[in-house]
């Protein structure tokens, strides 16, 4: 029984890693948004599995909330806000590091996170052992996506992946913080997305571009 639980946890962690790589390996905003949606669905599944393994029923509610907010609400809002943006704002034509190099770097980041979590000397159960490195890998990959992409729109996606990683991190370490805090964080993310998407829409209108390098320049008119 114990070993079957461990197997299910390991397999679900692997699937989550694969879903995270979907964000790195594609170009174009709509592709990322779809990858993020798939990743959130997998994340909700992993959360439900954690709930099953630990036997705490509140985690199931957190899983359902994750599914509703992250895989339905946030992609819908982002699609709605960006529907009037020009198509050239939505495709990442030249990130700082090429696609193939960033895939290799992400694989190295996964290795790094496994290495780092093995250095932490604390007694832990199997949930922590299996899923903590996965959550850290998600965090690192999100950070990498954030610094690698040029447009503001794609940096929002990086932020969302980091948030997913943090969510899994807390869920693994604490086996579910109290439900109020969980709901608070989700609402926070939702509002953050709304504000940032309005902001980037206005940036696009004012500067005629969403490239972050243009934002650092002084205006010369």
């Amino acid at each position: 029984m114990e070993s079957i639980q461990l197997d299910i946890l390991t397999i679900s962690g692997s699937v989550l890693l694969i879903a995270t790589f979907g964000v790195v390996a594609r170009r174009g905003f709509m592709d990322w948004l779809n990858a993020y949606r798939h990743q959130s669905i997998v994340l909700a599944g992993v959360t439900a599995i954690i709930g099953y393994v630990t036997g705490i029923w509140e985690i199931y509610i957190a899983a359902v909330l994750t599914l509703l907010v992250k895989s339905i609400a946030i992609p819908k809002i982002l699609t709605y806000v960006t529907r009037r943006l020009d198509i050239e704002f939505k495709t990442e034509t030249n990130p700082y590091i090429s696609l193939r190099t960033s895939i290799i770097i992400s694989a190295l980041l996964v290795a790094l996170s496994y290495f780092l979590t093995q250095q932490i000397p604390f007694r832990s159960d199997q949930v922590v052992n299996v899923l903590l490195p996965v959550s850290m890998a998600q965090f690192f990959i999100g950070l990498f996506v954030l610094v690698n992409r040029r447009t503001v729109l794609s940096q929002v996606v990086g932020l969302l992946i980091i948030e997913n990683g943090l969510f899994l991190f807390t869920m693994v370490l604490t086996h579910g913080v109290s439900l109020i805090i969980e709901i608070g964080i989700l609402v926070d993310i939702l509002v953050g997305i709304v504000i940032s998407s309005i902001l980037l829409f206005r940036i696009g209108r004012t500067f005629d571009s969403l490239d972050v390098t243009n934002l650092a320049n002084l205006r010369d008119d």
């Binding site: 790589f21 390996a25 696609l99 193939r100 895939i103 290799i104 992400s106 694989a107 190295l108 290795a111």
Partner: peptide, 12 residues
């Protein structure tokens, strides 16, 4: 790009 995905996958 596609081959790199294969390499990264086998690295993981």
């Amino acid at each position: 790009d596609l081959i790199t995905i294969a390499i990264a996958s086998s690295m993981i």
